[in-house]
């Protein structure tokens, strides 16, 4: 009978198979979250999909987070198993200038559009993507709007009137 693996069990399987290529792992909201190297990202996803105990057959989303010029980007991939009903998130840390990540669109067809969106919103190139063109933005649009350093024209004229996330924390320090 299919049984869901606990976050620890998923993590230990990843660690025993990929060793030091699993850079970090933690548990968030009851889901295992593993940070892996960009080189092994594709292998990790293939392993998670094909291993019968894991069988993550559904790619929920691929997106990214911009942590600024020092920490760079993090590509976040959420996988789900319809057989076992368990989740996992895979993160890949990338440098801020010229971020390149391998594609997993050959493993999960869903990832195709998600990677195109991540490309236009963050400017992260997915190496090996079959059709790396814009998905949502209009053709003449320039820039990567979800990057932290993207200048919003309206805010140049009138600054954000409300509170800014993280500002209070900085004051306290």
């Amino acid at each position: 009978m299919a049984t869901a693996l606990s976050p620890d069990e998923t993590e230990s399987r990843l660690r025993s198979h990929f060793g030091r290529d699993v850079v970090a792992s933690e548990e968030q909201h009851g889901h295992p979250v593993a940070t892996v190297t960009a080189e092994r990202y594709h292998d990790v996803c293939r392993f998670l999909r094909d291993e019968p105990e894991l069988s993550f057959d559904y790619c929920d989303f691929v997106s990214a987070v911009d942590f600024g010029p020092e920490r760079g980007f993090e590509v976040v991939t959420h996988l789900y198993s319809n057989a076992h009903h368990h989740n996992v998130r895979i993160k890949v840390a990338l440098p801020h200038d010229q971020p390149v990540c391998p594609t997993i669109s050959d493993l999960y067809a869903t990832a195709d559009w998600h990677e195109r969106e991540t490309l236009e919103m963050f400017g992260i190139r997915f190496e090996g993507h079959p059709n790396p063109v814009k998905l949502l933005l209009s053709e003449p649009f320039e820039g990567q709007p979800l990057r932290k350093d993207f200048a919003l024209m309206s805010r140049e004229a009138k600054p954000w009137p409300g509170a800014v996330e993280g500002e209070d924390l900085e004051d306290e320090e």
Partner: peptide, 13 residues
């Protein structure tokens, strides 16, 4: 006028 999306990158104001 754009309403709550007054500072959006994609909304026509």
């Amino acid at each position: 006028c754009g309403g709550p999306y007054w500072d959006s990158y994609s909304v026509t104001k």
